[in-house]
C-alpha cells in the first residue's frame, strides 16, 4: 500500500520542525497516543490506543529514524503490533518545504497491515482514517503555528509519559518522537484503507 499527502502549515519551517520535535505537542496531536519510551539511540517504543471501526486495540510500536536532515526531512520506519488486531509496518519519508511564510509538509508512506486489521479493516474505515488524519493535522497546525512554549500551551502538564532524557550523543529524543508520530499516522492510515 502506498499513500502520500501534503499539508500547508501557516508557520515558518524552523518552527514546524521544532514542533515536529516537541514531544508534548506531538503527543497531544496524535489521537490516542499514550506513551513514548526511548529504548536506545536508534529505537523507540510507543503505545497508542486506536479505535477504528470494530477493531480497537492498543498498539505497541517500534520506530527507527534515518536520513535526518534538519529542518528539511527524515525517513521513519515503524512497526506496530496490536495483538489479535494484527500488525502494521511501514516507512514514511517526511519533508518540509518553505513556501513564502508557510511551510508545506509532504509525506510518502509505504506500508502493510496484517491480521484482523487487513481482514476487517480494509474498506470499512476509510472515512475514519481521514477523520483521524485531519484531527492530527488540525491539532498540529494549531499547536505549531502559535508562538507559545509547550509548557504554557499545555499547563497543567499531564504526567509525562515520555522519557525525555536527553541522549548525550546520537539523535535527540524529540526527533524520535516526531518520527513515531508519522509511524503512528502511517498505522492509522493503513488501518483505514
Amino acid at each position: 500500500m502506498d499513500m502520500s499527502g501534503e499539508y500547508r502549515i501557516p508557520a515558518p519551517r524552523e518552527r514546524v520542525w521544532a514542533a515536529l520535535n516537541d514531544p508534548e505537542i506531538l503527543r497531544q496531536a496524535i489521537p490516542g497516543c499514550e506513551s513514548v519510551t526511548k529504548t536506545s539511540d536508534t529505537d523507540m517504543e510507543a503505545a497508542v490506543t486506536a479505535a477504528v471501526g470494530p477493531v480497537k486495540a492498543r498498539f505497541k510500536g517500534k520506530v527507527t529514524l534515518s536520513d535526518i536532515n534538519p529542518p528539511e526531512s527524515y525517513t521513519i520506519t515503524g512497526e506496530g503490533t496490536g495483538g489479535a488486531a494484527g500488525f502494521a509496518k511501514g516507512s514514511a519519508q517526511v519533508s518540509l518545504r518553505e513556501d513564502g511564510a508557510d511551510t508545506v509538509m509532504t509525506y510518502v508512506v509505504k506500508a502493510n497491515v496484517g491480521g484482523k486489521l487487513a481482514q476487517i479493516g480494509s474498506r470499512l474505515i476509510d472515512g475514519t482514517a481521514k477523520k483521524m488524519a485531519d484531527e492530527f493535522f488540525t491539532r498540529f497546525v494549531a499547536l505549531s503555528s502559535v508562538e507559545t512554549t509547550t509548557e504554557a500551551a499545555t499547563a497543567p502538564a499531564p504526567t509525562p509519559a515520555v522519557a525525555l532524557a536527553e541522549p548525550s550523543r546520537g539523535i535527540p529524543t524529540a526527533v524520535w518522537i516526531s518520527g513515531l508520530v508519522v509511524a503512528v499516522l502511517a498505522v492509522l492510515y493503513l488501518m483505514n484503507r
Binding site: N112, V113, G114, G115, A118, Q119, I120, S122, R123, L124
Partner: peptide
C-alpha cells in the same frame, strides 16, 4: 488476497 502481502482482504461479510 493482497498480491504483495498475502493478506485476505475480503475477510468479512462487509467486504
Amino acid at each position: 488476497y493482497d498480491e504483495e502481502t498475502g493478506q485476505l482482504i475480503t475477510g468479512s461479510f462487509m467486504d
